[in-house]
């Protein structure tokens, strides 16, 4: 039995075809790439900044390079992967714009998931408490958070337009990690997490 993936990772894995070549940037303990290589015969590679997590991946026989999404994506050549995944990490990068450009350079497409800072409860919390919002996936205090570039669904779409990045697909998730039907006008209010699939124009 393969371990059940975190909800958003399960949805990402559904977006991956069999026999693809996938780079997972910030692969953590390698759950997603392990799943993809076993279940979909995907040729996988991970990038992970923390040595302990990387070692965890190595023990499973996965191929992982130690690296930082901000600086080390230059080691990969253009179109060398069919899909590049960046899950729950873009908000923690120093140069999100550079990172996104690199992702679609390396991969024919990129799948990027992040917590939506435009979610209505976050807005409500901020209005009523006047303090930086926290929730299950954003549990940190403002002064020690790795999430230095939080953005909303609308912010992300705007950045894509600015850089002429094509949005191929978009999956919105509620607080339980379940897919929600897109209500265009309110998507930025109702989604807790979001998964974008983007590519070069």
């Amino acid at each position: 039995m393969t371990k059940i993936l975190r909800n958003d990772l399960q949805i990402i894995s559904n977006l991956i075809e069999e026999n693809e070549k996938v780079l997972d940037v910030g692969c953590g303990n390698g759950n997603l790439i392990e799943f993809l290589s076993k279940e979909k015969n995907v040729d996988c590679k991970g990038i992970e900044i923390e040595l302990e997590k990387m070692n965890f991946c190595l023990k499973k026989g996965l191929s992982v390079v130690q690296g930082d999404a901000n600086y080390d994506l230059n080691d990969f050549s253009d179109n060398s992967f069919s899909t590049v995944i960046l899950s729950q990490t873009i908000q923690a990068t120093i140069f999100p714009e550079r990172v996104i450009k690199n992702l679609i350079r390396i991969g024919k497409r990129a799948i990027i998931s992040f917590p939506n800072f435009g979610f209505w409860k976050i807005r409500k919390d901020f209005i009523f408490s006047g303090k930086m919002p926290k929730n299950k996936i954003l549990p940190y205090e403002w002064f020690d958070t790795p999430n230095i570039h939080l953005c909303s669904v609308n912010d992300f779409i705007q950045l894509c337009h600015k850089n002429r990045i094509k949005i191929k697909d978009k999956v919105l998730l509620n607080e339980n990690g379940e897919k929600i039907q897109s209500i265009n006008l309110f998507e930025n209010l109702i989604s807790y997490q979001v998964i974008f699939c983007v590519s070069k124009k």
Partner: peptide, 14 residues
Amino acid sequence: IQSINQYNTKVSFA
């Protein structure tokens, strides 16, 4: 690693 990356995913590095 840059040279191998293009053809072979089975590269680990620390």
